[in-house]
Amino acid sequence: MRVLFFVVAGLAALYAGYWFVGSSQVEAGARAALAGMEARGWEVEYADLSTTGFPSRFDTTVTELRATSPDGVVRWAAPFVQVFALSYRPNQVIVVGPPEQTVTVAGQDLGVTADGLRASATVGWSTALPLDHAAVESGPLAVVSDGGWSLSLDRLLGAVRMAGPGANSYDLFLEGTGIVPAGLPERFGSLGLDQLRFDGQVVLDAPIDRRLAVPPRATALTVRSLRIAQGDVALGGTGELAPDAQGFLAGRITLTVENWRGLLDRLEAAGLLPFARGSLVERGLEQASRGGANLELPVTLAEGQVRALGVTLFDAPRVR
C-alpha cells in the first residue's frame, strides 16, 4: 500500500509539473502570437494575459485587448478573448469571443453583438502546426454602424478542413440564416435573406500553418452547392472557377433559379438588374424555362466577362 501511495503521489507530481510547464508554454505562445502581430506592424495592447484551468485544461484569457492595423484603417477592441484547450489535447483549441466588441473600419465604428460567438481549431502534431480543421459559429449576431445602417442574422456557421487528394486543398462551408439589413436606401430593403449557404473546395498557393505570413491566394474553387433563398425565390449553383492569366475569375457555373420572375422583380426593385426588363435576356430566360417558374442556366466567365444565353451581363470580378 505504501508503495502504491508513493507511485500515485509521484505520478500526480509529474502531472502537476507537466501542467505548469504546459501552461507556461501556452502563455508564451499567446504572447508570441501577439508579438508576431506587432512585428508585422500591428499596434497591440492588452491589460492582462493569464492561464488557469488546473488540472485538466489550459484556459488563457486576454483582457482589454485592442489592435490597430499597420495602415490604421482597421481597429478592434474587445473586453476579453478566451482560449481553451484540454491539457491532454493541446493541439485542439476553442476561442470564445465576448458578447460585445467594436470594430472600426476607415473611421466608421461597428458595434458587434453576438450570442455564443466561438471558434475552434485543430492542428497537426508537426512543428509547422498545419491546420486540420476549424469552425466558427454564433447564435443571433448583429452589426450596428454609427453611419446609420445595421445587419443582423439568426445564426452563423463557417468551417474549413483539410481535403485531398491535391496539396493545399481545403473544404469550405458557410451558412447564415435570417439575414436582415436595415438603414440602407429604401430600394435595398427587400435584400434580406432567409438562407445563404455555400459548400465547396478551394486550392491555395500555400498551406495554412504557422509559417503563413500573408493570406494565401486561391488557385482554384469548386462550388459543390450554393443556395441563396428569400421567400419563394431561391438561387443555386455548382461549377468550377479559377483566376485566369490576367487575374479575372474564369470558369463555368450552372445556376438553378426557383421563381426566376420573382428574382428579376427583386433585383429590379433594388436597382441591381444589369439589363432592361423586356430585353433579349429576359426573353431568353422565358425560353430557357420553357414558360415555367424554374430554370437551369449555364453561366460562363471568360476574358473578364460574365456571359449567359450568348449575352454579356457584366464584367467578371478581378481576384488578383
Rank of each mutant, 00 (worst) to 15 (best):
residue 3 V to R: 14
residue 4 L to G: 01
residue 10 G to R: 13
residue 11 L to Q: 04
residue 12 A to G: 09
residue 13 A to S: 06
residue 15 Y to N: 03
residue 16 A to W: 11
residue 17 G to I: 03
residue 18 Y to G: 04
residue 19 W to E: 13
residue 21 V to R: 01
residue 25 Q to C: 03
residue 35 A to G: 09
residue 44 V to W: 02
residue 47 A to Y: 04
residue 49 L to M: 10
residue 50 S to K: 07
residue 54 F to A: 02
residue 56 S to E: 10
residue 58 F to L: 13
residue 75 R to K: 12
residue 77 A to R: 12
residue 83 V to R: 09
residue 86 L to N: 11
residue 87 S to W: 13
residue 99 P to Y: 04
residue 101 Q to K: 06
residue 109 D to C: 05
residue 109 D to Q: 13
residue 110 L to T: 01
residue 122 T to S: 12
residue 124 G to H: 06
residue 136 V to P: 00
residue 136 V to G: 00
residue 137 E to P: 01
residue 141 L to R: 02
residue 145 S to D: 13
residue 146 D to C: 07
residue 148 G to K: 08
residue 149 W to M: 09
residue 151 L to Y: 06
residue 157 L to C: 00
residue 158 G to C: 03
residue 163 A to T: 01
residue 165 P to K: 02
residue 166 G to K: 01
residue 167 A to I: 05
residue 168 N to C: 11
residue 168 N to M: 08
residue 169 S to A: 15
residue 171 D to A: 15
residue 172 L to F: 02
residue 178 G to K: 07
residue 185 P to F: 07
residue 191 L to C: 14
residue 192 G to V: 04
residue 192 G to Y: 03
residue 193 L to K: 08
residue 193 L to V: 11
residue 201 Q to N: 15
residue 206 A to S: 14
residue 209 D to M: 07
residue 217 R to P: 02
residue 219 T to Q: 08
residue 220 A to W: 02
residue 229 A to P: 05
residue 231 G to Q: 10
residue 232 D to W: 00
residue 232 D to S: 15
residue 234 A to I: 07
residue 239 G to V: 13
residue 239 G to C: 11
residue 248 F to N: 13
residue 252 R to A: 15
residue 260 W to Y: 15
residue 266 R to Y: 10
residue 271 G to W: 01
residue 273 L to E: 12
residue 280 L to Y: 02
residue 281 V to E: 08
residue 285 L to M: 15
residue 292 G to P: 05
residue 297 L to F: 01
residue 300 T to D: 14
residue 300 T to V: 15
residue 301 L to W: 01
residue 307 R to Y: 03
residue 317 P to D: 08
residue 319 V to W: 07
